[in-house]
Amino acid sequence: MNGNEMLFVAFPYAAFVIAVVVSILRWRRHPFTVSALSSQLLENRRLFWGSVSFHWGITVILVGHLLALLVPSGFELWNGAPVRLYLLEATGFALGLWALFGVVVLLARRFMVRRVQAVTTPMDIVVLVLILVQVVTGLWIALGYRWGSFWGTAVFVPYVRSLITLSPRPELVEALPIVLKTHVLAFFAFLAVFPFTRLVHIITVPLGYLTRPWQKVIRNRPEPAVYHPAADRTLERVP
């Protein structure tokens, strides 16, 4: 196994296994530790600019990446006309800048606000730096290696699909420039640290809220459906 295979085959699989197994273990064994660990109570104003920008920017971009993976043909079709390609790329770039602004504010807040410092763990910094690397390399690719949404479907999608179908083809990404490789590797690193950090809150997004009833009542034993006087008499007969 050469270096390329290590990085682009072994590492992603290892990261994926870690992400899944540790997340499940943590969820089941230490549910108390699964939390978004909000620090809004301690600091509000910077969090607004940082958290809102970052979360919305990164979420939409992630969905975009996911769509490219799921329906690459759709992307190719869309990008058939240059205007639409520019529109897509400009939107993506703007979202990326938005996320970058957010993550920088969040990172600065971690260092500058004393109250937030008090609840900052090393892992918080690791996570923010990883995301920063991800966003910066993403923007760099968008600027330096145009047009990513156009060639990405031909380069990355087959590679990721090869990983998913368990027939990895690392040679697809072997010759890519270092920035692109960093972007990919940083994602796998992100996967690997995911279950050890507050990032686990991503998989707890409470979409069930949309459909559940407002109130929640819990009984320690089920409510008897119908009253059975006969059942009571049986109880009385017990010596």
């Binding site: 409470p206 809220y209 407002w214 109130q215 929640k216 009542v217 819990i218 320690n220």
Partner: peptide, 15 residues
């Protein structure tokens, strides 16, 4: 509070 909890973590005990 129960109605606002997105996770459904808050509940009222029937007993």
């Amino acid at each position: 509070c129960v109605a606002a909890c997105p996770s459904g973590a808050i509940y009222k005990r029937a007993e």
